[in-house]
Design a protein around this nucleic acid. Structure first.
Lengths: 212, 212
DNA sequence: TAGATTGTTAATCGATTAACAATC
DNA sequence: TAGATTGTTAATCGATTAACAATC
């Protein structure tokens, strides 16, 4: 039982970690000090070994028969996810999804801070959404030179996505969080992560018709 | 090159299909009649064999040297996804995400029709969001007896998610589309599909801090 | 001590990628 | 015909699950 200090985390593990974190924080709020992989696994109906592997990636070491220290585990998970740091982000496209993200207060917990929101539509510009002013796209580079950000959130329609991404890349963002169902090209070195609702909807509706 | 009429589609394939569909519809609008896997693969930077396997699942048969008929492929993909049918849905929780989904006009293309929206908050009840009246949670079962729906969309806070799911299950929905970062229990036979933003955010922020 | 849980290795499973004959 | 593309089988890769000794 030595500390492996693993730097390799699988993508699948990363996706499960926020779920664990949420549970751990609930437990912490309830005053629970220790938790076992078995318990976590039962909560989510996962395989206990899988949970153990996922937690192993955090570098936290458990104690046989007892489990892991909740407080310390929370810190490790957050560290691994990068949620202890604050990541400044621009949001491009203040449609329905853009508005929802602007209003999502929990992002703060995940280290995500939207520092500016942009739109092409003159109707939306200068309006305020959740206390934030919507700026014209044409000012993005100027804003970026004053208030740099590392993440670009893309919530424009599919046919404008590449254009928005290109502008964000020029502005110097290091990662794109894309919500548009379009193929996106990015230069080497920039991170692209897609968050499309249609993916899980596809699985759901397929399952639904398959059963009928 | 015979038609296999495969009923097995992998989860991973299903998630990619909406992306292909979007491209196919763009091509169709541009008047393109035929498309090859090679072309689709290049667009998305996927492996051509992977695209071929994905398309094979639709049952559509291509022609060597030429490719697939766009129009016919669109139909097959939609059929496989279940997007030719209309799936009625209830939405529970009219917060930011709930509002965004209510306003998302593209769902119609995916066969998803939100027939009623519910919330616990008396302040929100009777208000209108995108022309739709917000109903009190307590009326859900009554509404369900008049206007049944097969999908329940859960956009409430994590600590209310299970409660919302239970109510939806009692109302008779066959599938839950869950946006809350909480462990959800459902009875056998009900489909659960999670659509949590934190999953892809976790991958993104981890990549970001790993690079620094 | 007894037994639950950890850490870790090995086996299994599923998805991706490589290879290639068939074909238009 | 020549060569691009399909359909399909085999090899590889990665993630999940099983098995089990170490340990508290």
């Amino acid at each position: 039982m030595k500390n492996p200090v693993r730097s390799v985390v699988s993508r699948s593990s990363l996706k499960r970690l926020p779920l664990y974190l949420h549970l751990l924080e609930k437990l912490s709020a309830e005053g629970v000090a220790r938790v076992s992989c078995t318990y976590i696994a039962k909560e989510f109906d996962f395989d206990p070994t899988q949970v153990r592997k996922d937690l192993e990636a955090t570098g936290e070491v458990g104690t046989a028969r007892i489990g892991f220290r909740v407080a310390s585990l929370i810190g490790r998970v957050k560290e691994l996810l990068g949620w202890n740091d604050t990541h400044d982000a621009y949001l491009v496209g203040v449609g329905n999804m853009g508005k929802a993200l602007l209003g999502y207060r929990d992002f703060e917990k995940y280290g995500l801070r939207i520092v500016a929101a942009f739109d092409k539509d003159p109707q939306k510009i200068k309006s305020h959404v959740f206390g934030r002013e919507i700026l014209p796209m044409s000012t993005l580079l100027k804003v970026a030179s004053k208030t740099p950000a590392r993440i670009g959130i893309v919530t424009v329609p599919a046919d404008q996505a590449q254009e928005a991404v290109d502008l964000l890349v020029v502005s110097g963002v290091k990662a794109i969080w894309n919500f548009a169902p379009a193929p996106i090209r990015i230069p080497r070195g920039v991170i692209l992560e897609n968050a499309r609702l249609t993916r899980s909807l596809a699985v759901l509706t397929n399952n639904l018709v398959k059963k009928t």
